[in-house]
Design a protein around this nucleic acid. Structure first.
Lengths: 342, 342
DNA sequence: CTGTTAGCGCTTTCAC
DNA sequence: GTGAAAGCGCTAACAG
């Protein structure tokens, strides 16, 4: 049985087994250059002594920690939780562990966390969700470990990243509403200062109207914080106004579902009276009545692909494509009248 | 500016600043025994050279990694995501980072992950959600780092843990339904072999009926997998049966909301025709119509308190109470007719 | 196939 | 207040 008092080291095992440290190290690391008999002997004493290799020492000596850092806005957000699952699954597959840090999208926190992660000698870093500023670039470039961006990108395009086409998908979503023939299409958005979600999705909405030859009606636009309550209240405002919209585009599902309930609480029906479409396709989208039409974002895949990409960099594999764009998929369900995409 | 080619070490800084490694180490660690002038000089060259302390080397020398391991069933599950947020916030507050691992509640994975985390020399470990078996105890005891359980406990009660009273709360929830005067109260549960959620919540249901002098009607019991779809389908089954229940207790909110929709899809109303109560109080509970009555579990707090408890152990503080029980709170909303607790 | 020997970069006595 | 030196536990040449 394992004694716990003083930690037992590779040296102890070597002595006990009557071999050198190097040999023990070899069997621990699966190096084939060890005679089977020796290997067995070592393995036995390892088990007998309850030896547990010290990964920190190993990390110092080998300059590899088999750990990657993940900077994420907020793990309690369904979108990022799912994305993180994708990251972790692939990380596990390649025998990496992940150090998870919530940034709340605060620049200072992002920088400080990145710095801390780099100090911990992570073999790679996944940076999610925030805007990449000049300061970020500085911190990033102060390190030689590979860094890949997920669900965000450097506007100056010099970092590997995996993203989806937000503008295009937001435009498609809006087009569905336009094709349904609505006069007034309300927009429930996020801060326009948010270059990752808020702005691009707004841009898609605008572009759709524009291409349809419609004027942008400022009074149909409401900006919130991506949360259910915000969607509910903003939709209420719009719906109670003089020129109530008959269709609503929520830039994420939470806001869209809030909008559905606002419509319903006003005694109207979705989609008969008001059509609603969302974005993301989080579980909530199919846990509401009517089922929410939305843009399905491959959250899990974004995480998985980003992590996979990172492993390639960490292994110095050649990567053919460092900026991968995953496809979103329009998912028309019951909160819109149109049931099929063009 | 920081050059990135060869890593710059504490030794380089010392040489450049014309002091010894020890001094640099002191200023980096905020040791007060350094003359202000010297400190400034060192700080300057650190900044100038772009020196970044190597936490791995530090960890090896000091035997502290300021990192804690977290073994969790599934981060993409809203319950655990929120709990993890509590953990991470407190960890950050105490300057720890967390290594996050998903176990999917698989014993083998739990053991293997715990082992890996221990090898990485985490200063402490948070173990969430799974059953603690003899094998777990063995792995746990093979280490001297503090381990605290969150949202689970060792039946043999020898580990620090933070939990809530599941049986009692499940009983309370069921009692609400009983007080509403329902003849048949359906139960939508999880596997009874799950000692953490499935069984205790079932036990609470049973106990409530028992204390009310009611016989347990097996035909009103359906076991699923905690998911929305499972709740929906199982409720459908029950509702379409000969002896359709007029009240449903879902052991978690997802199942309960699934049940609400089953009722609605059958053309009936909640709570007029069928009352529904859930458990957990995840965001979904307030993102559905009618608002779901449920048992509010302090998810964030469970994580936060567990992490706080762990820090105490890591700092060798004396802890007065190592088994903390947090309170759940009955949250009656619109899916039940009763609007106030006893 | 196996052992020897340097470090990896930092903390930590122990002197001065 | 500061420096010298001995490790922390392991990997990685390099011999043999």
């Amino acid at each position: 049985m394992a004694r716990k008092k003083e930690t037992i080291t590779i040296y102890d095992v070597a002595r006990e087994a009557g071999v050198s440290m190097a040999t023990v190290s070899r069997v621990v690391n699966g190096n084939p250059n060890v005679k089977p008999v020796t290997r067995k002997k070592v393995l036995d004493t390892i088990r007998r002594m309850g030896y547990r290799p010290n990964a920190v020492a190993r990390g110092l000596a080998s300059k590899k920690t088999t750990t990657v850092g993940v900077v994420i806005p907020d793990i309690s957000n369904a979108f990022f939780a799912e994305l993180t699952r994708g990251i972790e699954d692939i990380a596990t597959m390649y025998h990496y562990n992940i150090i998870l840090c919530n940034s709340d999208l605060k620049k200072e926190k992002e920088l400080q966390l990145t710095e801390a992660l780099l100090e911990k000698q992570v073999d790679g870093l996944l940076f999610l969700g925030g805007e990449v500023t000049e300061e970020h670039r500085e911190v990033f470039s102060g390190s030689h470990v590979p860094i890949v961006l997920a669900a965000t990108q450097d506007q100056r395009e010099e970092r590997p990243s995996v993203i989806t086409d937000q503008v295009g998908s937001a435009q498609e979503a809006t087009e569905v509403l336009i094709r349904e023939g609505h006069e007034r299409i309300g927009f429930l958005g996020g801060p326009l200062t948010d270059p990752i979600i808020g702005y691009p999705r707004y841009q898609g909405y605008r572009q759709a109207l524009e291409e349809a030859g419609r004027a942008l009606d400022e009074s149909q636009i409401r900006l919130g914080n991506y949360r259910y309550d915000s969607g509910y209240e903003l939709a209420m405002e719009l719906l109670k106004g003089d020129a109530a919209p008959t269709a609503l585009f929520g830039v994420n599902d939470e806001m869209a579902v809030g909008a559905i309930h606002a419509v319903q609480d006003l005694g109207k029906r979705v989609p008969e009276d008001v059509s609603v479409i969302g974005f993301d396709n989080v579980p909530l989208a199919t846990q509401v009545r009517p089922l929410l039409s939305t843009v399905a974002v491959p959250m899990y895949d974004i995480g998985a692909v980003a992590m996979r990409l990172l492993t390639k960099y960490m292994n110095d594999e050649t990567v053919e494509q460092n900026q991968v764009v995953l496809q979103n998929q329009l998912q028309l369900r019951d909160s819109t009248r149109l049931q099929e995409a063009e």
